[in-house]
């Protein structure tokens, strides 16, 4: 249960090897978290990621979950929730894709869009329903600044995240009615393995920065978070900048 000061006892990370996701888990766990569930495809990587948590006294369980295998979502979530209540679920799922490949290969592009959009929506929605059933909980969903203003360099990824982002905006409202807190996070350029080798955008940040922003924003009761906060107004500005000028801006 989340206590009166907002401290959880259990955390579930979908996308169990996500660097941002793991940073959020590290930031959220305090003296009370005793159960962490990591769910993802790469079991050996998750086992490695679990170690530091286990060393500091937390119980970590690992569940096999493939976001693209939507038929397996329900079974995977059942095993996550059968071990006890989940106070905070973190949806750190999706793929960046390789834009240059995706531009030439429609199948590849559609896969990038599907994983980030419908597959992610399905897992998020099923997780949300599990929280509704248990009568309490918070779900944190990682979207992207690219969902708000897709750029030339990432519009295929952005298109997928835009679908997820729109869905979660609505889920925030539904969550309000049914007592589930939904938090939508739109990070800018985060330095991770996923973005390794890419040219950094302005306001680049590390996973830990995103995690800290999320923790602060939760404390303030915010449901839509830009990380860093400055890119919120920037995203709005980008929306109204005429396309010919936008095209000439650095990425």
């Amino acid at each position: 249960m989340i206590d009166a000061l907002g401290q959880p006892q259990s955390v579930f990370l979908a996308g169990g090897t996500s660097e941002i996701g793991l940073a959020i888990v590290r930031e959220l766990i305090g003296p009370r978290v005793d159960r962490i569930v990591l769910a993802g495809r790469n079991l050996s990587q998750m086992a490695q990621d679990a170690e530091p948590f286990q060393v500091s006294g937390h119980t970590v369980s690992i569940v096999e979950l493939d976001v693209e295998d939507t038929a397996g979502h329900e079974g995977a979530l059942d095993s996550v929730f059968s071990q006890g209540d989940i106070d905070i679920a973190i949806m750190a799922i999706g793929v960046l894709g390789i834009q240059s490949d995706d531009e030439r290969d429609v199948d590849s592009a559609m896969r990038t869009i599907r994983v980030n959009s419908t597959d992610s929506i399905e897992l998020t929605f099923r997780t949300f329903q599990q929280l509704v059933q248990q009568g309490h909980g918070t779900v944190i969903v990682l979207s992207s600044i690219a969902a708000v203003r897709p750029r030339r360099a990432n519009f295929i990824y952005g298109a997928g995240k835009a679908g997820l982002d729109a869905f979660v905006q609505g889920l925030i409202e539904l969550g309000n009615e049914v007592g589930i807190k939904v938090i939508l996070v739109r990070p800018g350029f985060v330095r991770t393995k996923m973005t390794e080798g890419m040219a950094e955008a302005p306001f680049s940040l590390d996973p830990i920065d995103v995690a800290k922003d999320i923790k602060n924003a939760i404390g303030k009761g915010k449901s839509i978070i830009y990380s860093p906060a400055q890119i919120g107004p920037l995203a709005t500005a980008l929306k109204v900048i005429p396309r010919p000028i936008l095209r000439k801006l650095p990425r």
């Binding site: 206590d3 329903q129 599990q130 509704v132």
Partner: peptide, 28 residues
């Protein structure tokens, strides 16, 4: 999971807190 609609629509569902108004949860 097929019964989830129940918790959305049922009028008897209420969000409850204690007198301190922290940590709300839903119940029938």
């Amino acid at each position: 999971m097929s019964e989830v609609s129940g918790l959305h629509r049922d009028d008897r569902l209420a969000t409850l807190t204690g007198w301190g108004r922290t940590s709300p949860s839903r119940a029938y």
